[in-house]
Design a protein around this nucleic acid. Structure first.
Ligand SMILES: [Mn+2]
Ligand SMILES: [Mn+2]
Ligand SMILES: [Mn+2]
Ligand SMILES: [Mn+2]
Lengths: 218, 218
DNA sequence: ACAAATTTTTAGATTTGTCTAAATTTAAAT
DNA sequence: ATTTAAATTTAGACAAATCTAAAAATTTGT
């Protein structure tokens, strides 16, 4: 497996191309910042290797082997992100680029030992679940903060926007994963939210609320 | 810098192509398990970039920039080796292949943090010195065990042969870096050595003695 | 010094991954 | 049901890194 092949599999997975759903050539091209014609070439190659199902003009979906391969890379990516944050004091907005490189290191022992060193974390620094060594993967029970009804409480469990600017914004306002959040009131005019986070009262825009995932209490 | 370019610089450095000495095309090809014609191509490319001096038919030597670049890669390689041994319980015969990959990860912060985590080690698991962040590099004061006169004492500080089989051989016979060694007697017939290592008496072949580096006492 | 052996370079081909521009297929709109 | 628009594929080109085979330069041996 080349690095490029691995990145294609990861992109297809992230676009939901597992199971039956198939992903459009253009969507993959956009996700990978490349051209549709390049995607077509790679689709043929990956189909040849049994990693994707590809029918001309019908898009691409991962085979079972393709899914497992993608999960293995995502597992490495997220474990490395945890390592960088927990062991090397990186902040959560700095880890992605480095993990994009580290995810391609080929050594089963290495990633198993990193997993052990971190005490088998379940989630990465952005709240995304880490696939297990045997390829089990469970999406988290979560919803957008903007979808929470008034008066309901929850825990902040993830971010939708993973850009540096958004993550640093959260740092600045001391909003972190694990924080308890209560929706106090909604402002109809601009869909902004009055929330209680820990013991602080905060007024956040709809743009923030649609980029924070929470797990509703109860 | 591509991975291939980095590997060429490292190979040239290891063949002694810094300073004035120049390295032969064939020697580089052999070191890198590639063909001389490929080396010629890369020599031109690296010369173009100002990383090596290259004169047709006269071999290759590193420029100052080339030396610093090579040292940075060697620094990363050796720091990662220490990390694997000290933090992830790899044994010293398993680290090289993984470090060959990790040395190409591009993140200054990452390697600085690894350095800090390891408390700024001076030597890698095989006793090789680790260049500093600012490119200072000091070869160790050492000699082959086979060159030590009878009755002299020293400390085991490195290995010449870094193959897995040799390293595991040393493990099996409980010979490790840092051990005190005394040459008790030499056998003229086969140049084998009677040594005292710690409190044990050992009889080792010349092949072993020419692959162990020691620092002579006094 | 000169022929022979060795080393090194060139020329041309190959693989991987990418691109542009043109052709084709599918989807959408009238 | 056509026409138009959008998505997708093909054809041909290119850069990087490699190779083989042949040519050129250097070194070695007598
Ligand atoms: Mn990431
Ligand atoms: Mn990647
Ligand atoms: Mn090594
Ligand atoms: Mn390398």
């Amino acid at each position: 497996m080349t690095r490029s092949e691995e990145n294609y599999l990861k992109a297809i997975f992230h676009l939901g191309g597992s199971a039956t759903a198939s992903v459009a050539t253009n969507a993959i091209a956009e996700e990978m910042e490349t051209k549709p014609s390049s995607v077509t070439d790679m689709a043929k190659k990956l189909a040849e290797k049994g990693l994707v199902n590809y029918v001309k003009y019908q898009g691409v979906s991962l085979t079972e082997v393709g899914i497992q391969t993608a999960l293995a890379i995502i597992r490495k990516h997220r474990l490395w992100e945890v390592f960088l944050v927990k062991k090397l004091d990186f902040s959560w907005d700095e880890v992605h680029e480095v993990a994009e490189q580290l995810e391609h290191i080929k050594s089963e022992k290495l990633i198993d030992k990193i997993d052990e060193l971190l005490d088998y974390p379940k989630y990465d620094p952005h709240g995304d679940p880490i696939p297990t060594k045997n390829g089990e993967f469970q999406e988290r029970d979560k919803q957008l903060l903007s979808e929470l009804p008034i008066k309901s409480k929850g825990i902040c469990v993830g971010v939708n926007d993973t850009s540096s600017t958004f993550l640093r914004f959260l740092d600045k306002h001391k909003i972190a994963l694990g924080d308890a959040i209560e929706v106090v009131e909604k402002e109809d005019f601009d869909d902004s939210l009055f929330i209680k986070i820990g013991d602080r009262n905060l007024h956040i825009s709809n743009q923030i609320a649609t980029n924070l995932f929470v797990k509703k209490d109860g």
